[in-house]
Design a protein around this nucleic acid. Structure first.
Length: 664
RNA sequence: GGGCGCGUAGCUCAGUGGAUAGAGCAUCUGCCUUCUAAGCAGAGGGUCGCAGGUUCGAGUCCUGCCGCGCCUACCA
């Protein structure tokens, strides 16, 4: 509603400027600093003053005159140096807003363009930690945002089950612990054991195992080759442990309301020879070449923009970079780097590889949704179509920007300029540990680390906050509070509420920071349920709903039909109606926040909106005592407004993947 | 060295080139017989790293400098 109104006003001003001044203008609409100054402000006159060489206030008057007849505009004023401030027709706006909410969310058509979002992508060799959660929650929220705008979205969680990290874990089982394949199978299959936790420790032990004797790195290289070959014991163990850990990760993510459509695995990229196909394409187009000299001799490398090849072209302007800076795609031993496989994967996502995976069902979620996994063999029919996206978002931390650029560059080199432009690196900063957090966890810091503002998480060193531990702790904290407030509720109910609060707190915590802020993780802040937190927003909705619960418990009822346009007019009109109007206007801006969040790949905008609307409601809640209201018409109006805010806030929380508890 | 990012209140962070720079936490003062105080109201707290520039207007854009972080592997 807000966006539609804004668009109408922009259009009217654009047409006016073209007609009157013969100028193409970009109309900027923002909010006046104080609500009393109006609902929308246009600083356009100041900008035009120079071009037209006329006083800004005079131009503002003309713009104002052009805006007065626009439908939905009640009043236009000139203020300050030449701002055009406009006031909306409140009752009309409220009526249209209510009507717009009864329209169903646009559903994606089968013929529509598909957007692929890849996120989570945890190496399947250890338990998920807090850093992985940021990725998953950002990605999942972004998916929810896109779907809310009617987009068809496919969620992929790439599984690197044949990489170095899994190889290290296999080395741990087979050479450090000297376990047999059967013993590992027993452990991986034991549902009572926290297998991912076990591997967390084992992985850290393997790091020390190598440090003790560098010759043991031979084991890693050998194991990696065996895994890639896919025949021997190491490959079977790798498949077993990585699959078991993927299941742990899925369970952890489901606790956070995160789910997926497809798990494309690196093993299939290898076995179905995706890379060979990509290599062929890259070589034919000359995107990569065989280096014949220098440190990269014998490798297939990709040209860097501005870098010389060994032929010496592109050496213009003296800016040429050392050809040794070119990125190695195929190692001199013939194996392909991760980036190479990623290029093949990215080509497949756009349907440009000329190859496809086979698929089989991997998991069924409680809501009935099926999660598929890539497979080397065809398995049955009724398999959905995967890949072939028109736009791809890769949710990957900022440290991989360089590699993501290389992937896009690979597409460009193959002539897929459009697809390269639609390969969007959804970049975010890492989650680190605050010094206090390290102290709490008993982590010894080196003297130089102690001077830093934060310490980087390291799976390799086993340094980090495990996701499930954090969630458990949040639930325990929330449960303590719920139990004290609801001594009579059944334990099952209290546990459910505590879980919803805990997840609300965690998801909000991970979303409230903008993507390029490093989160220095701190238990005190993450475990907070007050102030700018998820539970604060949840609480606002619970309060709103309690009004209706109490109303009905007291034998009262609410009739939306009683809220006629005349009633809206009566209670929204200035100046008495100002507070309610402000709340309503604020509640109507969720769409704008969502659009901003999508355009800037910044879900924090929606989190911020949710908090501010909750704040607005809490303020209103204290100011207006609805159930004691004597004027029935006024009471009906206030209930209408509460319903409206409840609906908008609930919808916004849903975008953030946060549920509303039945009580708090 | 090169690339990317950051520097805003004691702390953690918002801030689409626009009006008097905002939240939360922390500190202090009030408010529970009320639709639950996981809340509300209020107070104090700022050289927006520094210096130039562009602009009617700069926390926001440009340049330089200072400080910090990440990347720059035949790891991912």
């Amino acid at each position: 509603m807000y966006l539609a109104t804004q668009a109408r006003i922009k259009q009217a001003v654009r047409e006016f400027a073209l007609r009157q001044y013969e100028l193409e203008v970009n109309v900027i609409v923002n909010q006046p600093p104080r609500p009393a100054m109006g609902d929308m402000a246009l600083p356009l006159a100041m900008e035009l003053a120079r071009k037209l060489r006329r006083p800004p206030r005079q131009i503002a008057e003309e713009i104002a005159a052009a805006l007065r007849p626009v439908s939905g505009v009640a009043k236009v004023e000139i203020a300050g140096a030449g701002y055009v401030n406009l006031y909306l027709d409140r009752a009309a706006y409220a009526t249209q807003l209510a009507a717009s909410l009864t329209k169903p969310v646009p559903s994606p058509t089968a013929a529509g363009e598909k957007t692929i979002v890849e996120h989570t992508n945890i190496n399947p060799n250890k338990a998920a930690h807090i850093g992985h959660l940021r990725n998953a929650v950002l990605g999942d929220t972004f998916v929810r945002l896109l779907r809310s705008r009617g987009e068809l979205v496919e969620v992929q969680n790439y599984i690197d089950n044949t990489g170095v990290q899994v190889a290290d874990l296999v080395v741990g089982f087979l050479y450090l612990e000297r376990k047999t394949e059967q013993e590992v199978a027993r452990m991986a299959g034991d549902p009572s054991a926290r297998f991912d936790y076990y591997c967390w420790d084992l992985y850290a032990s393997v790091t020390r195992f190598y440090e003790e004797d560098a010759s043991r790195l031979e084991l890693r290289a050998r194991t990696l080759q065996e895994i890639e070959a896919g025949e021997q014991e190491a490959a079977r163990v790798a498949e077993m442990v990585s699959t078991a850990i993927v299941r742990c990760h899925l369970a952890t993510m489901l606790r956070l309301n995160v789910s997926y459509d497809l798990l494309p695995r690196e093993s299939e990229i290898l076995h179905l020879r995706f890379w060979e196909k990509a290599f062929e394409l890259l070589r034919e187009k000359g995107a990569i070449y065989l280096e014949t000299e220098g440190k990269n001799k014998g490798c297939w490398v990709m040209r860097q923009p501005g870098a010389e090849t060994s032929d010496g072209d592109e050496a213009d302007a003296g800016q040429a970079r050392d050809p040794e800076d070119n990125k190695v795609i195929v190692r001199s031993n013939g194996t392909v780097t991760y980036v190479g496989k990623d290029i093949a994967y990215q080509l497949w996502k756009f349907g440009l590889l000329g190859k496809d995976f086979h698929y089989r069902p991997f998991h069924t979620y409680p809501n009935g949704h099926t999660l598929w996994v890539s497979s080397a063999q065809a398995a049955g029919d009724s398999v959905p179509v995967f890949g072939q996206g028109q736009r791809v978002y890769n949710v990957i931390d900022v440290r991989q920007s360089y590699l993501q650029n290389i992937v896009a560059q690979g597409l460009r080199a193959l002539g897929f300029e459009e697809e390269a432009n639609r390969s969007i690196h959804f970049s975010y900063e890492m989650v680190a540990l605050s010094p206090r957090c390290c102290a709490e966890m008993g982590i010894e810091l080196s003297p130089e680390d102690r001077k830093r503002p934060y310490v980087e998480v390291s799976g390799r060193k086993g340094l980090g906050v495990k996701a499930d531990d954090l969630i458990d702790r949040l639930i325990a904290e929330a449960l303590r509070e719920v139990v004290s407030r609801h001594p009579d509720e059944p334990d099952e109910v209290r546990r459910r509420i505590a879980t919803q609060i805990a997840i609300g707190a965690l998801r909000y915590f991970l979303l409230k920071y903008t993507c390029n802020a490093v989160i220095a993780f701190d238990f005190r802040e993450a475990l907070s349920f007050e102030g700018e937190t998820g539970p604060y927003v949840q609480y606002a909705v619970v309060r709103a709903r309690n009004i209706f619960r109490k109303l009905e418990a007291g034998g009262g009822s609410y009739d939306p039909a009683a809220v006629t346009p005349a009633v809206l007019e009566r209670f929204l009109s200035p100046p008495e109606g100002d507070p309610c109007w402000q709340l309503l206007l604020q509640a109507s801006q969720g769409e704008a926040a969502a659009e901003m969040a999508i355009a800037t790949t910044e879900p924090a905008a929606v989190a911020k909106f949710a908090f501010q609307l909750a704040q607005g409601f809490n303020n209103f809640y204290h100011r207006f005592h609805i159930l004691t209201e004597k004027d029935e018409e006024r009471k009906a109006f206030l209930l209408w407004l509460v319903r409206m805010v409840d609906s908008r806030l609930t919808a916004t929380l849903d975008l953030l993947g946060i549920e509303v508890p039945e009580a708090m």
